[in-house]
Design a protein around this nucleic acid. Structure first.
Length: 176
DNA sequence: TATTGGATCGCC
DNA sequence: GCGATCCAATAG
């Protein structure tokens, strides 16, 4: 069953944990791509130095300040896109980054966007309770572990907060 | 207006 | 370890 807005309108770390074992579904040009989510990461509020939104609203991150269940997709390093789902209430910036899927070449946030044809141009601002990009609960229960964040050493203490979540014993690219 | 460096990845 | 490659966010 498709996850509705109320699922995303909860504390971000809880959403990040509960997304593990759910299925990301993407429809694009007559094809359907779907796979289980294996790794996520939470970005929450103004105190999280790793978050794009910690300094306040800008043209890029404004969607993080909007209501839950919308997609925030941005270009990183000039070549990859990253998919986030907005969580919590309007005007509080928070999101969950999808970092890994159980699918070929989807062990990484940039790689899964490439495989699932997700880009800033075609997915930023989409409602993820719609028919193009959404997440389903198919009744799979998983155990997870919490890990430090990745690629955000500039963020000081925030980089050490264990806000990254992964299905237990699942082998992804990043094995801390 | 100019400069810098990034929520990444793949190859050295 | 480092380059690719674009653009958002700062500084001037």
């Amino acid at each position: 069953m498709k996850l509705g807005r109320e699922f995303y309108d909860q504390e971000t770390k809880k959403v990040a944990q509960e997304l593990l074992g759910k299925f990301l579904v993407r429809k694009y040009r007559g094809e359907i791509y779907q796979a289980m989510i294996t790794e996520t990461e939470a970005y929450v509020g103004f105190d999280d130095l790793a978050s794009h939104a910690h300094r306040g609203k800008t043209s890029r991150n404004q969607i993080m300040f909007g209501p839950p269940c919308f997609a925030y997709v941005y270009l990183i390093y000039g070549m990859y896109h990253c998919l986030n789902i907005i969580t919590e209430k309007e005007n509080f910036p928070a999101a969950v980054l999808i970092r890994g899927l159980k699918y070929p070449n989807c062990d990484g946030s940039g790689k899964l966007c490439r495989e699932f044809k997700i880009s800033k141009e075609n997915c930023n601002g989409l409602n993820v309770t719609g028919d193009i990009l959404y997440i389903e609960d198919r009744g799979i229960k998983v155990e997870f572990e919490a890990l430090p964040c990745m690629g955000v050493s500039y963020a000081g203490d925030s980089a050490l907060w264990p806000w990254r979540f992964r299905i237990k014993n699942h082998q992804n690219t990043f094995n801390l």
